[in-house]
Simulated assay, not measured.
Amino acid sequence: MDFAKISRRHLLRGSAALTLGSVLGVRSAAAADTTIGFIYVGSRDDYGYNQAHAQGAAALKKMRGLKVVEEEKVPETDAVEKTIESMINLDGASLLFPTSFGYYNPHVIKMANKFPKLRFEHCGGLWSDKDPKNAGSYFGYIDEAQYISGIVAGYSTKSGKLGFVAAKPIPQVLRNINAFTLGAKLANPKATTQVIFTGDWSMPVKEAEATNSLIDQGVDVLTCHVDGPKTMVENAARRGAMVCGYHVNQSPLAPKAYLTGAEWNWEALYPKFVKMIAAGEAIPNFYRGGLKEEIVKCSPYGEAVSAEARKHADDIKAKLIAGGYTIFKGPIMDNKGKTVITAGTDRGQKDPELEKMDYLVEGVTGATS
């Protein structure tokens, strides 16, 4: 399929029509490629958040009729507005993916209002019906993959002490910490998780300090929710601990220490978006999915993962893909002894209560602020 000349009119609806170069399927020399812009807050080879998006952009580069332009290390300030305008005015971008969480409000909203004939897709889940209709947000239920990592971690720990290096205590981060811990307790009811918050998405020095501090306290399996897991993975492996990755597959960094990981699957989603646009299908302004929708995935198991752990994790993963399995199923208490999900209550992935999660579950130690 040739994706040249995606219609701007249809981009307003989150969809587009195709103009084929000729009936023979050869694109006309006069037909320009459709240009798609990607903006990253960090390096696109960070073995983390930005690399996951860059892998998705790379998948689009393989599709005929598309031109992809990228800009990395763009801060969450009005600098992203300048980058967006440059991509539009100089490169002719008509579909933009500003990927960092902090880009959206006010920057993406401002640009979407300024360029109402273009389409803006933001990763992070902040769109509301009060926002421009030519903007949208997409995100994945990556806590499903974190839950699977937790199961593997629960089987793999010898001390029963797990560690989590986290950036900020916002709902999505807390949701990942809690899912990881609930998965671990499913495999090992005595497992506990110690969390250290660094304060921001990319702070390698503090991430290294947190990793070493957790290991000094007896933690022998670690994971994280920061932009670049490379620091945690390499430091933990150097200290003899095992790791579960995040964002992308970090096993090349620590082949013997890597157990599994929670990965984004933008390589599947971005081509899907473009194909939906080309087919005239509307992309919902608020787009979500998990393992079943192939928006997230699990890293392959490392050599240290036991057959028992693999079987249990695979069984639960199959149930999540099939649908109907609930991670946050009551009764669940927080780490202060308060019941946060009552017995008989299931909080499925679309439950709005999960979008505003502000607690850590029983078995997790670490302050939320």
Rank of each mutant, 00 (worst) to 15 (best):
F180E: 13
L182R: 08
T34R: 12
V205P: 00
Y49C: 07
I316C: 02
G344C: 07
M203L: 14
Y47E: 04
N105Q: 14
L20V: 13
A17S: 13
S15L: 12
L253P: 00
K158N: 10
P352S: 02
G366F: 01
G102Q: 14
I321C: 07
P106S: 10
G65N: 09
G56P: 12
S251D: 02
T193S: 10
V243F: 09
A4C: 13
P169T: 10
L214H: 02
P171W: 13
A153E: 11
L126I: 00
E144W: 04
K67R: 15
G199K: 07
A112N: 07
R119S: 08
P229C: 00
F197L: 08
K67W: 03
G150Q: 04
D346L: 14
D358N: 14
S128E: 14
A241R: 04
K319R: 15
S251T: 10
I277W: 12
M203K: 15
C244K: 08
T193I: 10
I170M: 04
Q55F: 00
C224R: 01
I341W: 06
G290A: 12
G348Q: 07
M333T: 13
I88Y: 09
F197C: 11
T211G: 06
E209K: 11
A254F: 01
S86H: 12
G366P: 01
D46S: 02
P189W: 15
L162T: 05
G42K: 04
G261P: 08
K275L: 04
G150L: 05
C123E: 03
W127S: 08
F180K: 11
L214G: 01
R175C: 06
S149G: 11
G366V: 07
R175V: 01
S213A: 14
N176F: 04
K272L: 12
D220K: 05
T223E: 02
K206L: 14
S149F: 04
F286S: 15
